[in-house]
């Protein structure tokens, strides 16, 4: 049976909870941690660095599970800005909606937002995978360098602006593409990739229905004759 540790933010501070997660937890036989009464507090379960399942039971604030390594974090509610920012490995799942900058600068691991993600989802992502069950807001995957963003719903304005080598897949409508982002043909490898990520995210969608967006790479080199018009 899993050994479960329960922590209540009604009586503990976020710092005390995080100190437990960073200090006592690694090397212990605890396999699951449940954190109750998050009440929109910030930075809960940030900086985890061990294989453990963490459940946050309610709506949480900014920077939840930031810099995550190895751990599997689930939030049973909504989250504020920058959930799983700079995630390195492991997974972060949000059962509700996420505010701006979800998984920003993420290097690795999987981030799943079951509801909608707001603007700038995956901004500057560097290798993580993001699966959004709902829609994403404006400027999602802005300057995204590597990794995959899968959007099962719609994408807001300026998707993939100044995109580098990350790939975006959108099932629904794309309001508009950002500078240097372009829609490309879906190939067999793309369908396979989307299909694998949807399975990992446990979201039921037809991978064949997605559109692929990638960089046109026209901004990679300075063009003095472009007169700042891109």
């Amino acid at each position: 049976m899993d050994r479960v540790k329960q922590l209540d933010l009604a009586s503990l501070s976020v710092r005390e909870v995080n100190q437990f997660l960073h200090g006592e937890l690694p090397g212990s036989d605890i396999q699951r941690v449940e954190i109750s009464n998050p009440n929109g507090m910030h930075s809960i379960a940030a900086g985890l660095d061990c294989e453990v399942a963490v459940e946050i039971l309610g709506h949480a604030g900014y920077f939840i599970a930031g810099m995550n390594q190895l751990a599997r974090v689930t939030v049973r509610g909504n989250v504020g800005w920058s959930v799983a920012e700079n995630i390195m490995s492991g997974s972060v799942r949000v059962k509700g909606h996420a505010s701006q900058c979800a998984a920003s600068s993420g290097h690795g691991g999987l981030v799943v937002i079951e509801g909608d993600a707001s603007s700038r989802c995956g901004v500057s992502m560097k290798g993580c995978d993001i699966v959004v069950g709902g829609s994403v807001g404006h400027f999602s995957a802005f300057m995204a360098q590597a990794g995959t963003l899968v959007v099962c719903g719609d994408a807001g304005p300026n998707l993939g602006d100044s995109l580098y080598e990350a790939t975006i897949y959108v099932q629904g409508k794309i309001h508009s593409l950002g500078a240097d982002a372009r829609q490309e043909e879906m190939e067999g490898a793309d369908v396979e990739r989307v299909s694998r990520l949807l399975a990992d995210a446990e979201i039921d969608c037809d991978a064949g229905q997605f559109k692929r967006v990638a960089s046109a790479r026209s901004l990679y080199h300075w063009n003095a004759e472009a007169h700042q018009e891109y």
Binding site: N39, G40, M41, H42, G58, H59, G61, Y62, N78, G80
Partner: peptide, 12 residues
């Protein structure tokens, strides 16, 4: 921020 709403009645 949500934390200012967390204590309102029936917020869940």
């Amino acid at each position: 921020e949500f934390r200012a709403l967390a204590h309102l009645p029936d917020i869940s």
